[in-house]
Design a protein around this nucleic acid. Structure first.
Length: 953
RNA sequence: GUCGGGGUGGCGAAAUGGCAGACGCACUAGCUUGAGGGGCUAGUUCUCGCAAGAGAGUGCAGGUUCGACUCCUGUCCCCGACACCA
């Protein structure tokens, strides 16, 4: 064995040995505590791992190794998220079928992960693209369908013209582009499968409270779900006659207008109502200040007034020119993309419909406007305008000269007229001009007015969400085929899954308890949705529905998936009537596979299910898997990955788990207990790494030059774990030097005589104390995911070890590898004084280093210490109380809080305050500040002495 | 605009009420080496000083405390997410 640290000489050897010995195999729990440590599995791109990947993977590897050494049963698996747009787009570019490319990429990823020494149990590896896996994904889809959680709807959806597929709301960025390709999203009408994730909005929100996740991610999920409590208020749209009547009365009373008073003697029955507009508001307390109503261009009322045949126009004449004006505005607004609306700024535009509604509270006439600042997708698509207390409403009112009324006075007591945007009062305050609300604070008033409106039947409390139902169809080839069949004959006869009484299926549903939809909060599943006529799930024994291997799989222009062109795939028979039928040709989004892979890892026991492709998808088999294994491991204890999944994968998989819990297919409600985000690794030039900038660092090259341990330790040492950080080859070299020094100092144990190695009497007490501190610190830091400081502490220890070594034995200049002990005098070399640490204690240091640097520690463990079993299966060292003896400790001394000196005192005496003070007063540098002054003394035992001057004597 | 994270040497950073700058990088000087590289020793927050030492110092302004990077109030700036959400 060479003197020098040359990782390339032994790293490959240990990779093979660990694999052969199944060192990292997951064993049954057997009375131990379990620990499920998981990485967000990657999609295996053709480029291989970039240096960002190992940052997260090393962190989970350290945790896994730490828990193993602390006698936990650890599940630490890895797999491949290989379906979906990224893989498919890459394959399209390479002009190869993804089915052929993906396995090559996987092999490369796996090689690199093994190269880095990650302790995954590879026996549990799978890819989401394995039919043996996705048949279960399809099976789950069917269960969700049966419980009424999926529906089909022809709806305008976000469509990426470049990727030629529909997308979920979550996949569209704020600027209206596709999160994967950056292309601008269009709206397109497509018939889509949708998940009723909104039925779970409240639970998805509430359960966030119990999770140990980064605050930011929790907030992002809360915002995305966007729960708002408010009230839907119904406004009566008045007939033309009544509108004019009130208007003229108002005009005749200048005083009334000026004082913002309203018509008297109105009553709910005295006017003719021709329609109703419902507005959602979270601030009903301000409703006495409402002066207009705005509806979205897509609102149903717009349709009514533009249609010449509409009944409503019998009671309200609207001129042709007015109608054209309205139509022009609406058409313009609808054609504007999100980006266009953005770039135009927030300038308010709109058009008056000519219609008025009445505010039941005070009889005020509210002109009804149309504006694109009101979104059809939120609330009711209609807003009641309170310009005094909402900035957007104010901007709109200013633009169209609509009156502004103040109904809240803020803390500044300012009750002046609101004429500028800065005066708009959105904060806390006291009600005025609001009749029976006057004098209340806004919160009290909100409750009071809601009660009142409900009592009168004018409104109803309502909770709305930002969260939309999840569009689950993709018009692409590379995804799980959706296991649904459409039968036109059955559709014509209005047959669907639920109203066909085949007995057998219904019985199963009862068994699941899933037809009892009342048990699911907020669910208003419309199972008999007419869009579902003719749709039937595949019989479970027909799974997997395999993705056919085809030559041409490029997405088409038709808005259909390439599968639609394959007759042999499309044509099938109806599971209900047996007649000719068509398969669904859309596929699932790439999120489908990652929604439940962590469950599969926990189920996946190849010893029990020898040939997984033969395992049939049935509820019995699912439950067997859960009982046999998965329930012991789940949920995931530690989950590591990038923050970019905050509202995508992390929300979707939480949703699936809750649905599975309702199906009684799982018995927990949250998949990931602890979540940690890994910070991005930037290039050395502080830019994102990219091929075009030529600044990409390749892990293969780093490992080749410095070894895997250096790479691992550097990535943990570079910065706090969740922080974004630029690559630094210099810092990497610093870490490499540390490992060289570790190597060198342990070489000494190779040549010492055994008797010296175990001679406790020669040990250095201070060094042992430092070792104990290091063990404690490293143990704490690992579970706190503070690897940078854990490594710093180990470096500190090594520094002290070397120093002690050199002090004890002048010829033993251990840091200097060119001057190794081998060259020094053999007689001195073996002397007691040269050994500040026994073998046992040296091994402790090696053990705490092992999770960080598995190769070098294994090599030393086996080769220097001749151990027969892997260091990674050894036991984590315990801190042993040592007799320190009466050593000297140092106590800092402050005068008036400023450090002026220190006193040294024996360990046995530091508790005696008088003694410490006495010693301090012998220091001239301290007493010179005290001369002629009165003072008092604050002594924190063993920590600090502060002498506080209180005045002159 | 809202929410979240952050602001400490030349750089990455430590320290969560008790000696600010651990650890690493970079830098300086000396030693070692045929050279390059590497290694070793010492130093390295800033200002003044040969030094001993003194003063200042954790974005800014206040406050609490014997003592504040740490807690409180206000304010500025940077990063990230969301954003015409009624």
């Amino acid at each position: 064995m060479s003197d020098k640290y040359q990782p390339s000489q032994f790293e490959k050897k240990w990779i093979k040995k660990w694999e052969k010995d199944k060192t990292y195999h997951t064993y049954d729990i057997k009375g131990k505590e379990k620990m499920y440590v998981l990485d967000m599995f990657p999609y295996p791109s053709g480029a291989g791992l970039h240096v960002g990947h190992p940052r997260g993977y090393t962190a989970t590897d350290i945790l896994s190794r730490y828990y193993r050494m602390n006698n936990y049963s650890v599940l630490h698996p890895m797999g491949w998220d290989a379906f979906g747009l990224p893989a498919e787009n890459a394959a399209v570019k390479a002009k190869k079928n993804p089915i052929d490319i993906v396995p090559l990429n996987i092999a490369n990823f796996k090689r690199q992960m093994q190269m880095l020494g990650f302790s995954y149990d590879w026996s549990r590896e799978f890819s989401t693209t394995d039919p043996a896996y996705y048949k279960w994904t399809q099976w789950l889809f069917i269960q969700f369908f049966k419980m009424g959680l999926l529906y089909k709807k022809n709806t305008p959806i976000n469509y990426c013209p470049k990727c030629k597929t529909g997308l979920a709301e979550e996949e569209v960025l704020a600027n209206g582009t596709h999160e994967r390709c950056g292309n601008v999203i269009e709206k397109k009408d497509l018939s889509q499968w949708l998940f009723r994730i909104t039925a779970y909005a409240d639970r998805l929100l509430k359960d966030l409270d119990g999770l140990q996740w980064p605050k930011g991610i929790l907030e992002m999920q809360r915002n995305w779900i966007g729960r708002k409590e408010g009230i839907n208020i119904n406004y009566r749209v008045l007939s033309q006659d009544d509108s004019l009547k009130i208007l003229s009365r108002l005009n005749s009373s200048r005083l009334a207008r000026l004082k913002q008073k309203v018509v008297q003697n109105f009553s709910s029955s005295s006017y003719q109502t021709i329609d109703k507009i419902t507005c959602f508001t979270t601030r009903p307390d301000t409703n006495f200040g409402a002066t207009f109503i705005v509806i979205a261009p897509e609102h149903g009322f717009v349709e009514k007034i533009l249609n010449p045949k509409s009944q409503i126009l019998n009671k309200f004449e609207i001129s042709k020119s007015k109608r054209e004006e309205i139509k022009k505005y609406v058409d313009q607004a609808k054609s504007k993309s999100q980006i266009e609306r953005e770039t135009e700024g927030r300038k308010k535009t709109g058009v008056f419909t000519g219609f008025y509604a009445i505010n039941n509270l005070n009889g005020r006439l509210l002109p009804i406007w149309i504006s694109d600042f009101v979104l059809m997708g939120f609330g009711t698509g209609a807003v009641v305008g309170v310009p005094g207390h909402d900035r957007r409403d104010f901007e709109f009112a200013k633009e169209y000269k609509i009156p502004v009324i103040r109904v809240v006075v803020g803390a500044d007591k300012d009750n002046s007229e609101i004429t500028k945007k800065e005066q708009v009062q959105e904060d806390e305050g006291i009600m005025i001009n609001s009749q029976f609300l006057d004098g209340m604070d806004i919160h009290k008033a909100t409750i009071k007015i809601m009660d009142y409106l409900e009592e009168k039947g004018w409104g109803k409390r309502k909770v709305t969400y930002h969260l939309r139902n999840w569009i689950f169809s993709r018009q692409r080839y590379w995804g799980e085929p959706i296991p649904m069949v459409y039968c036109q004959n059955c559709a014509i006869n209005k047959r669907n899954y639920w109203n066909v009484k085949t007995g057998k299926e219904i019985k199963k549903n009862i068994e699941y308890g899933i037809l009892n939809l009342e048990s699911i909060p907020n669910s208003k599943f419309q199972i008999l949705n007419s869009d579902l006529y003719g749709w039937f799930p595949l019989s479970e024994d027909k799974l997997p529905l395999e993705l056919p291997y085809v030559k041409s799989y490029e997405p088409g222009e038709s808005g259909e998936s390439p599968l639609a062109n394959i007759d042999s795939f499309v044509k099938t028979t109806c599971p209900n009537c047996g007649g000719p039928a068509k398969r669904e040709t859309d596929t699932m989004p790439n999120w489908a596979g990652s929604c439940w892979y962590f469950i599969r890892f926990a189920q996946n026991q190849k010893s029990k299910i020898k040939d997984q492709s033969k395992e049939s998808t049935s509820i019995e088999n699912w439950k067997l898997e859960i009982e046999n294994s998965a329930k012991n491991w789940l949920p995931v204890d530690w989950y590591f990955g990038g923050a970019e999944h905050a509202v995508l994968h992390l929300l979707y998989s939480r949703f699936w788990v809750k649905a599975l819990q309702d199906l009684k297919l799982l018995d927990f409600s949250e998949p990931f207990l602890r979540l940690r985000n890994v910070g991005m690794v930037l290039a050395e030039d502080n830019h994102k790494m990219s091929k075009s900038l030529g600044n990409v660092i390749n892990p293969d090259e780093v490992v080749k030059e410095y070894g895997a341990d250096t790479m691992r330790m550097y990535e943990m040492f570079m910065a706090p774990f969740s922080q974004e950080i630029a690559w630094s080859t210099k810092t990497l070299q610093g870490v490499h030097r540390f490992l060289i020094r570790v190597w060198n100092i342990f070489q000494e144990f190779r040549i010492q005589n055994l008797e010296f190695r175990i001679n406790k009497n020669t040990e250095d007490k201070k060094l042992i104390n430092k070792l104990n501190q290091t063990i404690t610190k490293v143990s704490q830091d690992i579970t706190a995911v503070k690897y940078n400081t854990a490594i710093a502490m180990m470096m500190e220890f090594l520094n002290e070890w070397e120093k002690t070594c050199n002090m004890k034995h002048e010829t033993c200049n251990i840091k200097n590898k060119n001057m190794s002990l081998r060259g020094s005098d053999p007689a001195k070399r073996g002397s007691d004084e040269a050994i500040p640490l026994t073998t046992d204690n040296a091994k402790k240091f090696l053990k705490i280093l092992a999770p960080f640097a598995p190769f070098i520690t294994e090599e030393i463990w086996r080769d220097v210490f001749n151990e027969k079993q892997s260091i990674h299966l050894s036991t984590w060292p315990k801190v042993e109380e040592i007799e320190m003896g009466d050593v000297e400790i140092t106590i800092p001394v402050q005068v008036n809080g400023k450090l002026r000196g220190t006193v040294k005192i024996q360990n046995s005496e530091f508790r005696i305050q008088n003694l410490v003070v006495e010693k301090a007063l012998k220091d001239e540098n301290i007493t010179k500040y005290l001369e002629g002054k009165k003072y008092r003394v604050i002594y924190v035992s063993g920590k600090i002495l502060n002498i506080v001057l209180t005045g002159n004597i």
